[in-house]
């Protein structure tokens, strides 16, 4: 049975308007994470707009000749970064899986695995998955919040409605 690592990789906060973090794996793969303020998701309406962020994790540099292999330390690192970023209990993070290449379902599965493996952090988080689409396109999205978010029910309702006032995607 594979042992669960006790601690994650050391990470740095690079800052910037999109709240960038970075860490390096044992195999020297560099990952960056960003939490971009995202007011439009809730229709530019208070009270959630100031606490809503889009989340992305991406390989910034990969010295390996192939894709980075599975790494059990990454989920632990993620939870450390989430603990750091979610200092405000009202924070809401939205994640969407890339679907252009038809692998969105696999990405969603991997993200969910990471999330499940990382459930040992200082704070407790909940993830709500919303999968929807049309006959031609399908989307895998997730909402992540601290379990003590006082507005959890309202956030869920608002996300489900996905901003009734949402009209112009350019604004």
């Amino acid at each position: 049975m594979q042992s669960v690592p006790k601690r994650g990789y050391e990470y740095i906060f690079l800052g910037g308007e999109n709240n960038t973090y970075a860490f390096i794996t044992d195999q020297q793969v560099i990952y960056e994470l960003k939490f971009k303020p995202s007011s439009y998701i809730f229709g530019n309406q208070p009270p959630f707009t100031e606490f809503a962020f889009e989340f992305v994790i991406e390989v910034a540099e990969n010295p390996l000749p192939k894709l980075p292999p599975p790494d059990a330390v990454i989920p632990i690192t993620l939870v450390s970064i989430f603990n750091d970023f979610f200092s405000l209990k009202e924070t809401v993070v939205v994640y969407i899986c890339e679907n252009a290449d038809g692998h969105a379902k696999a990405r969603n599965r991997k993200f969910t695995q990471w999330f499940e493996q990382a459930k040992i952090g200082r704070l407790s988080f909940v993830k709500f998955d919303y999968h929807f689409g049309t006959a031609t396109e399908f989307f895998y999205t997730s909402l992540i919040m601290r379990i003590d978010n006082p507005r959890m029910a309202d956030v869920i309702t608002s996300f489900q409605k996905l901003s009734v006032d949402y009209k112009n995607p350019e604004k």
Partner: peptide, 28 residues
């Protein structure tokens, strides 16, 4: 109508995600 709005928001989220991914490639 709700589904249309959800798809529109999801598309914008994907567009934003791709911009962030490009930003990461540029950051390094």
């Amino acid at each position: 109508a709700i589904q249309k709005r959800m798809v529109a928001v999801a598309k914008r989220m994907l567009e934003s995600k791709r911009q962030l991914q490009q930003e990461i490639r540029d950051d390094i």
